[in-house]
Nucleic acid binder design. Structure first.
Lengths: 241, 241
DNA sequence: CCAAAAGTGTTGGTTTTACACCCATGG
DNA sequence: CCATGGGTGTAAAACCAACACTTTTGG
């Protein structure tokens, strides 16, 4: 192969290569479920290009981290939830996707529980969650990334028990159903949904009921992690809706 | 953002950046189905590192092409089949995956019809298809890539009519079943398989039968592309086995 | 007692699985 | 006439879709 490092100048990190190289970034579509709607985290860009526009959070991949580690690091910079599910979505490499220079991005789907507190990012002027149906036009090709991400989420929701990543530890079944309806975009019959959900064998009733509600309180359920792992090992874990 | 191009030296393409950058490559797991077995294309490395070892075909991503275009170009360099199905598998970015320097690779799954003639590649000492069960230890992290690729192929075969990409234009149903069995690794009941295959609605009998066979000749089928497109548009295309 | 949501079963149709024999052809 | 693979049907079980009413609770 060709194109290895040739020399280092005295400038801190500057480096010369025999052939030009694209810059490599990660971008994350961070989804959260709240108030019956799917939300996605956007940051307002503080500099050109696309200054003032909203964009998916992301950043450069460092020389000493994997692509996934870079995605995780960027997420921690914007928001700091305890646990983040991360799944690689694919690369976006249109030659002109960044007007400054050649930048290739690896996109990720991230799922977080509830809407976490959003930190003021260093280079992000502002960051907040938008309901996916109220997302404005985005910078770069981030509209395309988000659209692929939403499609991926639909597929995965039907295939894997990823709802565990989006819901609080304990939740009423109604909430699980609302999540399915929000992501899949269609109403589901309550009786059929409950049958399927319980038959999947990964939900257990806690015995407690929700509180502070103005009508009959629903039973709270939780995912049974042990059972999920066991099923997953046998390749038997399926979605619910 | 930071890290833009700073200067070009007089060397043909040499270029200096403010921060180091990983090199970006593509690697392809090229699958073909022949003699009842799934095969994958490997090239023997002509230089260090891993000189003499087998590896997946791949190469650098150019500055004026998308990642997918790079994969297609590399494929044409190794083998030149009329049509190649290409699907991005994901990135492989372990920091030490290449002993020379930081190289991040985007892996692809490619499907070709039959075993095409393999061209002598420029930097490949040798290239040929191996039955997937007889693949030797591979260079870099290509064992890992291949294993993810095989898993992806299993999933896709159950989900999409990708068998069309691996079979000749006309084939007996036995051949389709053999493909499913080779990829999924388990025997399938012939009667049930045929029912499902025909019910999928994308196969049509040609009226012709195979020739040169020492027993009763089987009817030849082909995929109905029009019908596939129509179903695909409605999101209804499913696998068969 | 009203409003709001929780909770619960049945039926009919469709799909999936398991399973074994006869037929056509070539040698 | 034998060997090889081609081709076919049925019954039981599982699964899925459609569908509406009663119960609990808080206000």
């Amino acid at each position: 192969m060709k194109g290895g490092k040739v020399e280092r100048s005295r400038e801190a990190m500057a480096v010369t290569y025999r052939y030009p190289r694209a810059a490599l970034t990660v971008d994350c579509a961070v989804f959260a479920f709240a108030e019956g709607a799917l939300h996605v985290l956007l940051i307002r860009r503080g500099q050109a290009p696309f200054e003032g526009m909203w964009a998916l959070p992301g950043g450069f991949v460092g020389m000493e981290e994997t692509v996934e580690a870079a995605a995780r690091r960027e997420l921690q910079e914007e928001t700091a939830p305890d646990h983040v599910y991360l799944e690689e979505l694919g690369s976006f490499s249109r030659v002109d996707r960044d007007p400054r220079e050649r930048v290739i991005s690896i996109a990720f789907v991230a799922l977080v529980r509830g809407i976490p507190p959003v930190l003021r990012g260093s280079d992000a002027a502002e960051a907040r969650f938008f309901a996916v149906n109220e997302v404005p036009a985005l910078a770069f090709d981030h509209d395309a990334i988000l659209s692929v991400a939403r499609e991926r989420l639909r597929v995965q929701l039907r295939t894997l028990p990823i709802s565990v990543e989006l819901l609080p530890k304990r939740f009423p079944l109604r909430e699980l159903q609302a999540l399915y309806e929000a992501v899949l975009g269609s109403a589901i019959d309550k009786r059929n949904f409950r049958k399927r959900a319980l038959k999947a064998g990964v939900l257990v009733a806690t015995g407690d009921v929700e509180e502070g509600v103005t009508h009959r309180a629903a039973e709270l359920y939780r995912f049974d992690k042990k059972r999920m792992e066991r099923l997953e090992k046998d390749g038997l874990v399926l979605g619910i809706g």
